[in-house]
Each structure stands twice: as C-alpha cells, then as structure tokens.
Amino acid sequence: MGKPTLYALLTGLSLIAAAYPASARIIIDCEKPAAAKTQVPANTVDPLAVPAKTSAAACGQKPLAAVAAPEKVQPINIVATGGAGMLKKAVKGEIVPQGESALRDDLAFKYRLYRPDEPNGDAMVLLHGSGQDETSLVSLATKIAPHALLLAVRGRVVQDGTSRWYRRLTPVSFDQKDIHVEAKAFAGFLKQATEKYKIDLNRTTFLGYSNGANLVGAVMMLYPDMVKQAVLLRSMPVLTENTDANLAGARVLTVSGVADQTYAPFAPALATLLRSHGAAVEARSIKSDHGLGNDDVKVVSEWLSGTSAQLKKN
C-alpha cells in the first residue's frame, strides 16, 4: 500500500471516529472493589463499620439502551485524498460539527460546551460519576433543561484506569487531602469558565451524579459562594471535617434510589448537613438503584420548574 493511500485511509478513519455519536443509555456508576490491602490514611473515616455491598442489580445487569436526542449535523468538505469517496459513503457526507461541543483543554479541567438552539439564559454544569466522562450526563441534562447552556466537565483524577473527581479509599471513604485539592482546582476552573463564557452563576444549576455530585457537595462546603442551585443524584457527604460555610440562599435537590444499598443510607445525613448550613433542601427517594433513568428526569424537571422563576428574580 502506497503512502498516499495509507494516509487517506487513516484520515478517513479518524473522521469516522469523530462522527460516531455517543449513545444515550441508562447511566450506572459502578465502583470497582477496593484492593484487599488498601492502606487508609489516618485523616479519613469509613462511615460503615461493615463494608456494604454495591448495588448488584445496577452493576450486574446489561446496560439498557435508550434513544439519544438527535444532534445537529452539517455537511463538510472532504479533502481529496484518494480515500474521499469511501469516506463520503461511510458518513453520507455529514459529521457532527465539532465547534463548541469539541473537547477543550485550555483550562484546569477538560470540558465541552453545548449551546441550545433557543437559549433562555440558564446554564447547567455537569459532573459525571466514576468511570464516566463529560458526555455521560448530556442526554439527561438536555431532557431536563433543553434551553440551558451545558458546561460538561471531566474529572481529572484517574484511579484504577477510570476518571474520577478525587481519590477513593473504599466505596464510602475518600482521600481528604485530594478532595481539598480538587475542590480548589474546580472552584478556580469555574471562575475562569463563567467569565470566559459569560455564564451567570445566579442562573446556573450544578447537576452531579454520584462521585461528581459528591464533589459539588464538597465545593459547597468549602467555597459556598460558588453554588447557588444544585441537583445531587445518588450522593453522600464526603468531607470528614465540618466547615463554617453559609449556604443561606442555596437550593438543593437530592435524589436517592431506595435499592441503592451502598449510598442511599447516607442521603439523610447529606440533607441534614446542607440544611444545618442554611441551604433549602428537598430530599427525594425514588424506586431505583444506583443507576439513573426516566424517574430522575421527571423528579428533577418538576423541581426545576418550581425553582427557575426564583433563580431569575435573584
């Protein structure tokens, strides 16, 4: 095979890979079992005396497919490389435009920006669960807030080969120093991103799932002026210290799954913690395990419809 032909083939394959859309799915954040001889630093606390079992129903079943929201596509001009004919046939002359939805790495965290066709001034910051990436919650967020600008962020800690927001020691105990470091970095990232893209934090909802929701909770306790409104899905408190955070004016929705044996038991403690610092918290429990589904869309959409008007007044 000559070099021009090989180059054309590689170019075509790379464009095909870029065109391949991420499929929507029922989202499941399955933590890997902790190593048998994990050393736990003295400054951490494992809230469970007996390690709890992860949700076997969520992690043992094959992920259910769901229909993704259609993404706009536009024709592109393909450079004549000898493989253009094959490429056009493969992608039918169209690819998903990279534009602002392309992965960006100009700030402390990698992220993607999604602008709606009919923006209403609202924004939503998305923080994924363990082993996922910044695209994992986009489909869910689009259903919940179709007119909001989406800032989808990727956790920068890699542990056991998966992306996370801070290091884990067990499924329910975490590296406290790492939480502080990453929460500070995220607060700095958020300040830069909101200035760069003219995002109004008074009209921004933070949508976090599991590990991502836990980071949102930590940011609220350490940098209380950052988060005005948050939706915390399958979350728990992760800081072992108390802070003097004043969360008066902050609004929070927590959603736990009744069959989530590992994390649902911590949901009341999370709501109590946030309320004790002045936040207005609505705690909901749905018939689910640790995975996300249509019930989450319904609960979050209903809650947002009742709070959006209040956000716009502030």
Results as ranks from 00 to 15, higher is better:
S173G: 09
D295S: 12
K287E: 11
Y197F: 15
A187Y: 04
T54P: 06
K184F: 01
E31R: 07
N294I: 07
S210V: 05
A264S: 12
V281C: 00
Y111V: 05
P224M: 04
P116H: 08
L169S: 08
A68F: 03
L137I: 08
H128Y: 12
V252Q: 00
G257W: 01
K89G: 06
L274P: 02
A84I: 08
F206G: 00
V138T: 12
P4A: 12
G12R: 03
K88N: 15
N211T: 10
G82I: 12
R168Q: 14
S163N: 13
A56C: 07
M220V: 03
M1L: 14
L87T: 10
E31Q: 13
A57D: 13
I26L: 09
A18V: 08
A141W: 03
S23R: 14
L253D: 01
Q98C: 05
G83P: 02
S101R: 15
V258H: 10
L107P: 04
A42T: 13
N314E: 07
L149G: 00
A145K: 09
P171K: 10
G121A: 06
L10F: 11
A102K: 14
S285A: 14
I144G: 00
D105I: 02
A309N: 07
Q176I: 03
Y197D: 15
E94K: 15
D29S: 14
S301H: 02
S308G: 06
L311I: 03
R25F: 05
V216T: 14
G278E: 02
A230W: 00
G93M: 11
A187E: 10
P70H: 11
V258S: 13
N314R: 14
A230S: 11
T170Q: 05
A269S: 14
L274T: 03
V216P: 01
W303Y: 12
L137N: 08
L253T: 02
T54Y: 10
P97K: 07
A58N: 05
N77R: 15
A183N: 07
A309R: 01
G257E: 02
L222H: 13
V40Q: 15
K313G: 01
K62Y: 09
A108G: 11
D133W: 01
I78F: 14
A17L: 14
G306D: 07
L273G: 01
C30H: 11
T38Y: 07
A279R: 00
G161N: 06
Y166E: 08
K62I: 13
R203M: 04
D289M: 00
F266D: 00
V252C: 00
E195R: 11
D105R: 12
A279G: 00
V216Q: 03
V300T: 08
S305Y: 06
T81V: 04
Q159V: 08
E94R: 15
P171I: 04
L270Q: 15
R154C: 09
K177N: 13
